[in-house]
Amino acid sequence: MRGSPYIRPIEAECRAWEMRLKYAQGLVDEWVACQRTWLYLEPIFSSEDIMRQLPTEAQRFNGPAVQRRRRLWRKTLEDTHKDPNFMAQADPDKKLEEKFKAANQKLEEIQKGM
């Protein structure tokens, strides 16, 4: 649309939507990456045997930093369930993309430690 010569009257609105959609795409990418890594690690660290073999990583996975990420994940899912309009979650003011990026970094550290 932005390449159209008829965009002038709505150019500001189009730019705003473009920014919001780019943010939404980044959020989806981080959200899915977090889910993928979490679903991989959770069954591993649910096993008592592995927790004994990898005590440092188990402590990181069950530590307060990851627990905050778990609450972030659950709250985001609850909010999405209450208001299924994705664009409500993709509001840049909520800073969900940044929070999921931080969560992914922590989960990657744990995964690399294994």
Rank of each mutant, 00 (worst) to 15 (best):
R2D: 15
G3P: 05
S4F: 04
S4W: 07
S4T: 09
S4Y: 03
S4I: 04
P5I: 11
P5D: 04
Y6K: 11
I7S: 10
R8P: 05
E11W: 05
C14S: 13
W17C: 11
R20M: 09
R20P: 03
L21W: 01
Y23N: 11
Y23A: 11
Q25V: 05
L27N: 10
V28Y: 09
D29S: 02
D29T: 08
A33Y: 00
C34N: 01
C34P: 05
R36T: 15
T37H: 06
T37Y: 04
L39A: 15
Y40G: 11
L41W: 03
E42Y: 14
E42G: 04
S46T: 01
S47F: 06
D49N: 10
I50T: 03
M51C: 15
R52E: 03
R52M: 06
Q53H: 03
Q53C: 01
T56I: 04
T56G: 08
E57W: 02
A58L: 03
R60Q: 01
N62E: 06
G63P: 04
P64T: 12
A65P: 03
Q67D: 04
R68D: 13
R69N: 14
R69Q: 14
R70H: 05
W73P: 06
R74I: 04
T76K: 07
E78W: 12
D83Q: 10
P84M: 10
N85P: 11
F86W: 10
Q89M: 12
A90F: 07
A90G: 11
P92L: 13
D93L: 12
L96A: 07
E97L: 14
F100R: 03
K101N: 03
K101L: 01
N104Y: 05
Q105Y: 06
L107M: 00
L107Q: 01
L107R: 03
E108H: 11
E108L: 15
E109V: 12
K112Y: 08
G113E: 02
G113N: 02
